[in-house]
Design a protein around this nucleic acid. Sequence first.
DNA 1: GTGAAAGCGCTAACAC
DNA 2: GTGTTAGCGCTTTCAC
Lengths: 324, 324
Amino acid sequence: MEDVARLAGVSMVTVSRALNTPDKVAPATRARIEAAVQRIGYVPNLLAGSLASNRSRIVAALVPTIANSIFSETVEGMSEVLTRHGYQLLLGQTGYDESVEEALVATFLGRRVDGILLTGIGHSRDTRLQLMRRRLPVVETWDLTPSPIDRIVGFSNREAGEAMTRHLIERGYRRIAFAGGADERSESRRAGWLAALEAASAVPGPSLTVATPSRVAAGREAIDELMRHDPPPDAVFFSNDVLAIGALLQCERRGWPVPRQVAIAGFTDTELASEFNPSLTTVHVRGRAIGERAAEVLLARIDGRGNVQTTIDVGYEIVARDSA
Amino acid sequence: MEDVARLAGVSMVTVSRALNTPDKVAPATRARIEAAVQRIGYVPNLLAGSLASNRSRIVAALVPTIANSIFSETVEGMSEVLTRHGYQLLLGQTGYDESVEEALVATFLGRRVDGILLTGIGHSRDTRLQLMRRRLPVVETWDLTPSPIDRIVGFSNREAGEAMTRHLIERGYRRIAFAGGADERSESRRAGWLAALEAASAVPGPSLTVATPSRVAAGREAIDELMRHDPPPDAVFFSNDVLAIGALLQCERRGWPVPRQVAIAGFTDTELASEFNPSLTTVHVRGRAIGERAAEVLLARIDGRGNVQTTIDVGYEIVARDSA
DNA sequence: GTGAAAGCGCTAACAC
DNA sequence: GTGTTAGCGCTTTCAC
């Protein structure tokens, strides 16, 4: 930077200003500086800038996993908004483990990230404490709670689970089973399923817990196991589309007509849900929008705009198709 | 850090050493320092450390997209290895656009990342130049070339395309079509398809280019369009499983028995490929392994181990199933 | 094994 | 609109 300054015949501060706040520098000066930058091939050291200004322009995202998961859309949406604003995304994967999350948060704090996106509302006491003490902009995502660490962008998994179950009840299904993972969000959906059945004074069908992250094969095995019950369920609500697609494939193999013998419902609304034969009844959620809104909230908080609403509910929709 | 040093009765240098190279500090001193760190709740500023040591312990990954794509596995594999070694992953998405890639590379260079993972071997002249000039550890992935920027981890898309086409020829298919995106890797697979047909003195079936990134719906539409040819193909090789699954779904709707009326082959070997009815004949590739090997190569290069091999070929496998 | 001095490459604050 | 001064919070080097 010193070389650039010398070549342009100005001081380093002016170079800095020309790069960061161009309109605070006279056009002629700016032009000379830009020419010098080109000539030398100067690449500013953002590390040094971050240290001096105490703003890293890096935001971290902590998700359970991105491989074949809906969280990849959230990360993608977030990344796009951040990049557009000159910020970069540091990615961390927790593998659904709170202690891994805690360790990653500590590292990210050390890197002085300007904000953090967290998945879900379940975090270790220490994670919450660390983040609140530092008053770092934080967005929790993919669920709602009245007491977030800072801000939250998501929808109510419990209500969505309840709504889908009500939909199945209204369609006339009388023995509705549930199958899902052991993670927070699946458990909330399961709780919603139970609540809806109780509200309708219906007897809950069997409930099954499968491994997280979800695999197609797990859905296949789950439907087999559920159908062994006597009497078998006439509908199964899966906590995500991956499992539901696995179940649909298994029903096809077994020769169980869907939804006549057993109805299948999913959650997420992946592209395959609408394309499948039969098309999958599911809950549509906006994974990409969550990432985009979360990025906007963080950027607003970083800019010190204090009037950022605490909760953004992106909602959900029951999508009735052929499978239920 | 000064507070920690004072509390432990040592100098800042010793605190720094206790944190970074614990075995260079006397056990008793180290214990006192660790206690002080705990007591104060000291979180080292890695930004400052990076600036002073000129090593950021950050590695960047540039992929076209991570949403519903095989690259998410590469990123996940890489992230795991990096985290295990105390490095963090900065994520950038190029959207299959070389100029976006170039801009992101420039930013990452400014952040003084210690290494970069690039997807594919097609990069702008400027991207290559910038990276080579800085002698930054770089790994290109998902393909092979005799002249990488630095190192490369992947497999030959062209050979894999050729191998699958040979497989189809051996199975007795005579009019083999191809459908795939316009990205580098799809085009290499398409070139392999053409080469295999020419080597067998066979007449190529129709070739179709669809939008990138691939969607199930595009596979559905592609098979419809290809089957309108007269005579229609007796086999279609899709450049990835997403398209192939779309085609299988459409064949089911149309009542076209697979593979009797038309055989379908994919590429990637996603979980759905083995689970589908009929199961999908495809090319198995190791997306996660690419990410893991790439991370290892970068870490070795960063540590100055010069004896890192230029090329790592992770190979591919033809997986013959029911659809072709 | 530990410490003192000298930066790393920028930007904030204030002056002019 | 531009410059001067004084750090940001660490690590490196060299000494002892």
